[in-house]
């Protein structure tokens, strides 16, 4: 049997779900810049809830997404996700997130349990030297990274893994399935260059970055989907998954 995560959460400090997302929200113009890197395994396993398995090697993705429109206006998010498996499903377990739009940030916290914090700057910009992502909060630069020398690839070559956010649902720690659909128009791949990354500020004080992979950028539509299921973080996902509208598994 694969290894399970070692983290047993409490509700304190978790985003409190007010109402799980029930409606699909379509963003017509979204750009996503992703930095993927391996992290040392011992701390990564310890950071995952017991419902989830770590893959090997353990790895994270830092995802910066600029939403050009939507019910809360334009906004940009930056999320650090530690990748895992819920049974045999790929999930990106969110450790920390920032947004530059207070309303969008509140929506993502309240409807999907995203541990999102408002920051002064969360940006994704094309520069002459590459595609740049920045996060500044409390006057400190938490992320300053560039996809250098990007070259075109096919959107078919890129895979986005569904998200899993730890939140308090009715006062109980719960993994919320944040699912999405997307249709990509453009895609690029390039080398990742970090000028600054405060990984502790993204909720991962114990993780150690060990091996960078190429960065990707895409443009297209992005749709936030209604929450279909939640998982008890303390039990294996096979037994602890509950579909919305159904009672908890025995």
């Amino acid at each position: 049997m694969p290894i399970f995560g070692g983290y047993t959460p409490t509700a304190a400090g978790l985003p409190a779900i007010r109402a799980l997302a029930q409606d699909r929200i379509d963003i017509e113009a979204a750009e996503t810049l992703t930095f993927t890197f391996e992290v040392l395994s011992e701390a990564a396993i310890a950071a995952l809830p017991a419902a989830l398995h770590p893959p090997f090697p353990t790895y994270c993705s830092l995802v910066v997404r600029r939403h050009g429109d939507g019910p809360y206006g334009a906004f940009t998010t930056a999320e650090l996700r530690l990748h895992a498996r819920a049974t045999n499903h790929y999930v990106g377990y969110c450790l920390g997130a920032f947004s530059d739009n207070e309303s969008a940030c509140a929506w993502l916290r309240n409807a999907y349990g995203l541990p999102c914090t408002v920051a002064e700057t969360v940006s994704l910009r094309k520069r002459h030297y590459g595609i740049e992502a920045r996060v500044v909060a409390g006057g400190r630069t938490l992320l300053d990274a560039v996809q250098a020398t990007p070259g075109f690839i096919s959107g078919n070559d890129i895979l986005y893994v569904q998200n899993s956010n730890l939140a308090a649902l009715d006062g109980v720690p719960t993994l919320i399935a944040e699912e999405f659909e997307y249709a990509l128009r453009d895609a690029k791949r390039g080398a990742a260059a970090f000028h600054g990354l405060d990984i502790a500020a993204f909720g991962a004080p114990t993780l150690t970055v060990s091996n960078h992979l190429p960065s990707t950028w895409t443009a297209g539509s992005w749709s936030y989907m209604p929450v279909r299921f939640v998982i008890d973080p303390t039990r294996p996902a096979m037994a602890g998954t509950r579909k919305i509208g159904q009672p908890a598994a025995a």
Binding site: P57, Y59, H89, R189
Partner: peptide, 21 residues
């Protein structure tokens, strides 16, 4: 078998490339 296979990190998952569709 499928459960064990899912714990691997496929090239398709993390390395965007036409080489691994």
């Amino acid at each position: 078998f499928g459960y064990a296979a899912a714990q691997l990190v496929s090239a398709r998952e993390v390395y965007a490339s036409p080489s691994y569709a």
